[in-house]
């Protein structure tokens, strides 16, 4: 059961990483990156390193994701208003 979960997690990590890089639109890539960060936090927890998992969820997925979304918003506004 846990093996199936781990395999599924590994596959989801690889898939979301690939989709993040290959996404044609920037906003989708950012949301996929946040999802990738949350899956990564789960993977750290499965590797018995909950400290790193907590830091990854808070900083890697949360704060970095918010910064990227903010940067995307600024870029959009600059494009709309030349």
């Amino acid at each position: 059961m846990t093996l199936a979960f781990d395999l599924l997690l590994a596959l989801a990590l690889l898939w979301s990483a690939w989709r993040t890089l290959a996404a044609p639109r920037l906003d989708r890539a950012i949301v996929l990156f946040i999802a990738f960060g949350l899956l990564m936090a789960l993977a750290w927890a499965r590797l018995a390193a909950p400290d790193i998992g907590l830091a990854e969820a808070a900083i890697g997925a949360g704060l970095t994701g918010a910064l990227l979304l903010d940067a995307y918003g600024v870029l959009q506004r600059r494009r709309d208003r030349p």
Partner: peptide, 17 residues
Amino acid sequence: RPGGAFQAGAVLAAAGV
């Protein structure tokens, strides 16, 4: 147990954001 200053600070910062 798992936790500490970095994680606590990140949660507080997320509240600010």
